[in-house]
């Protein structure tokens, strides 16, 4: 099953998004959340992102949902450090963090492939409110 990594500037947003997504997931979808700096302030902690990526199950791939600037930049940097064979299975989604995480959790739980999940969460349909 595809795993999900949530990266936010805020620990509360990261944990809250994880909680929300976990309501929807099937048991075996692994979701990890990283937020804030090492001191718990607003910001990003590349070391924590790196550790989460090391620990998460990467067998069927990992989808990363990130919020703003430095979260995206830090994710890209940490992804550059991955071994080539793992790098292919880790993708930063072009999707909003909350909606993306929830939809990805549902689809991962259904056993969908990483490319199928990406094509649904990267579609504009998931942000339509009207």
């Amino acid at each position: 099953m595809v795993s999900i990594l949530i990266v936010s500037h805020s620990r509360e947003i990261a944990d809250g998004t994880k909680k929300l997504a976990e309501q929807m997931k099937q048991k075996d979808v692994e979701i990890k959340a990283v937020g804030g700096t090492a001191e718990g302030e607003i910001g990003t902690d590349p070391d924590a992102i790196n550790t989460a990526l090391e620990e998460i199950n990467k067998e069927d791939g990992v989808i990363i949902l990130a919020d703003l600037g430095s979260a995206i930049m830090s994710v890209n940097m940490v992804m550059d450090w991955l071994d080539e064979d793992i790098k292919k299975r880790v993708v930063l989604a072009d999707a909003p963090i909350v909606e993306g995480a929830v939809f990805a959790a549902v689809e991962a739980g259904l056993g969908n492939s990483i490319s199928d999940i990406l094509s649904s969460i990267e579609s504009l349909d998931i942000i339509k409110k009207n």
């Binding site: 990003t44 430095s70 830090s74 940097m77």
Partner: peptide
């Protein structure tokens, strides 16, 4: 810098 800055300047100056 990468480990401690916490904002975009970390990855930017770090890299």
């Amino acid at each position: 810098l990468i480990s401690t800055v916490g904002g975009a300047a970390g990855p930017l100056y770090g890299t």
